[in-house]
Design a protein around this nucleic acid. Structure first.
Lengths: 201, 201, 201, 201
DNA sequence: CATGAATGAGGATTCATTCAT
DNA sequence: AATGAATGAATCCTCATTCAT
């Protein structure tokens, strides 16, 4: 049991990765319950027992995909923060870059994103982490008086996260807009608001 | 079969509603696949065949709940539009009222909302309708120069919808904020943006 | 789950009993692991799901059989003790009667005995209880000086239990000797020993 | 296939014996069906195919262990008989010695005994042989008038075998009594019986 | 209006065993 | 002498659904 998945040869590694790849497709398209191991395995050119050579259960492979997504996302966040510290660019550009990277990452990992950000039970937790992260950044800028003092930055973070969530599905994954565009638009909307500055009330 | 659902007797109606109520709870909490008819029926104090007296299948009862949600939401939207036309109040207030009513509706119909807005396959379509609706309103105000001319109002509508989606789950259903508060905050954020107006770059 | 097996109608009860009966045969003949639910159910004229209408699992039905055996055996023991107290007959006769009843019970419940006394994991425990019971009786007689003072009555009880175990398989279940005969022989052997009283060393 | 088991190299022999040793442990503890080749092989530090280098199947290795037990037991019996013939000691001592040797053998080969005497299908046959052996000896002594004439010596042999069976499990393998003690007690019980010789009825 | 009883169809998982190297 | 990789063949179990009453 603990032995599972510790193959050393390259053939086994490849088989495992082939299964993971197809599993990601299946889970992304059909969700957890409607995805059948038999289908995954058949598509990968194996028989059912082979699956259990590499994964302990259906839950296990799903978790592996979720964790992969999560780790990559965390890595992205960390990297982003480091760069941010060094970066001397102006604020909107910096924010846009961060968002753009997220969209880019989602775009490059569509199946994984579907699984980790939408389908899995951990999706909520993952988003919570994202919100936490956003909140911290936003609050920092708020302290620096870049942002309005009267806003609840956690609510703002939730809003932005929700916007990302939606735009990813409706614009990014439908190939209607690219990561950069989406990032720019979000920044534009959230930074300056809808109100026409020329209109006076 | 053609007979199904045409019960007129009050006993049957009550039974059906009891089942619907519990089904909503179960679907909302466990999702479609993990909800078992046996559980619903047991909780409602019936036996399995009784279920099929009122609903053609598991899909059917789920659909019935989704449609109930959808109709109510459409009704809300229509009512809102009618009132809006008559309403002569200033814009932010009017928008906030519309949002508040949505949140209020979600709050009053938590299980139904979970099902129709989050769990069902139609959720996407329902949100699309909501986005369409928002887009129309936003574009109207844009034409009236209340809103900035350079914004893609469909994207804005997606953003707002995503924000509602998230805040409903994280703030409304956790009883952290009430409908009015959430509506006000959204309006505040989207209308005026994050940028501190006093800070000049 | 907790509901399983609580059928009220007589048909269900009969079905359950039919399954139990055949299951006893199968388990007795093939042991736990080699007994297949599919076989039991097929022989009983049902399909697999019906099995789970009455029993939670393969383990569950096996346990039910074991417990039935155990309860019956305990009941026998208790009854035997009560009668013993009233009985004023001479000792050997009383012992023989008790043993005879055990053999009779085993003979009347061959499959159940195979399961509870030989196959199940609880067999050891059941025998331990039997040994405990015998030990108590034997020690009582020892205190009354009917039996030799220098014997470890627990060992004697183990010996008798082992003898019963073996004779049941080799003589009783092969129809070579009947319960009464076996009981008498055991009494004769254990009470008076092998040694020829006429031979002097 | 024809090659199997004919290894001459010392490495192979050692590997085979290592596997046999561990297999004995596993079979003794978990029985035939619950013992997994994968476990045996893992514990022995090999991979599954290596197993089939030495044994044709799971049944085969089990049989090998059973046969080892059986041969050793037969050897013991033969030796015992030879010695017996030469032995001029008095009867009870001789019998006790024989029993003691059996218990000693069981004690020295616990796993093998569990397998051959309790778990295997051949256990019955092996016990039958033991009974046959005992019967012959007992009948010889009966002819010599050392034992009572009115006893069915085969039944006695069954009883003794059952007693051995039980005491081995409950007293010997639990380290509560040693081979010599057990042998003496059995002789004492079976030879002289339970009845208090001083009590007259 | 309601139920006791039963099932069709499928899906995850296990394990002994083998092939190619 | 040994192994990485793979599989055939089962087996338990679940759940929506239906039939006869």
């Amino acid at each position: 049991m603990g032995q599972r998945g510790r193959q050393k040869g390259s053939v086994g590694v490849k088989s495992k990765e082939a299964i993971l790849l197809i599993a990601a497709e299946e889970f992304a398209e059909h969700g957890f319950h409607q995805t059948k191991i038999s289908t995954i395995v058949k598509r990968a050119g194996f028989t059912q027992p082979s699956f259990y050579l590499y994964f302990a259960s259906k839950e296990a492979i799903f978790q592996e995909l979720v964790q992969t997504f999560r780790k990559k996302l965390i890595h992205l966040t960390k990297k982003s923060r480091l760069e941010t510290n060094l970066d001397k660019g102006i604020l909107p550009f910096r924010i846009a870059k961060g968002l753009s990277e997220i969209f880019q990452f989602f775009d490059n990992n569509r199946n994984l994103t579907m699984i980790g950000f939408y389908i899995s039970d951990e999706a909520e937790e993952i988003k919570r982490d994202m919100v936490k992260d956003f909140t911290k950044s936003l609050q920092a800028e708020q302290l620096d008086h870049y942002f309005r003092q009267d806003l609840d930055m956690q609510t703002v973070a939730e809003c932005i996260t929700g916007s990302i969530e939606r735009l990813t599905i409706t614009k990014l994954f439908t190939d209607k807009k690219n990561p950069q565009q989406l990032a720019n638009e979000i920044v534009d909307i959230y930074l300056y608001g809808l109100q026409n500055p020329e209109t006076i009330y």
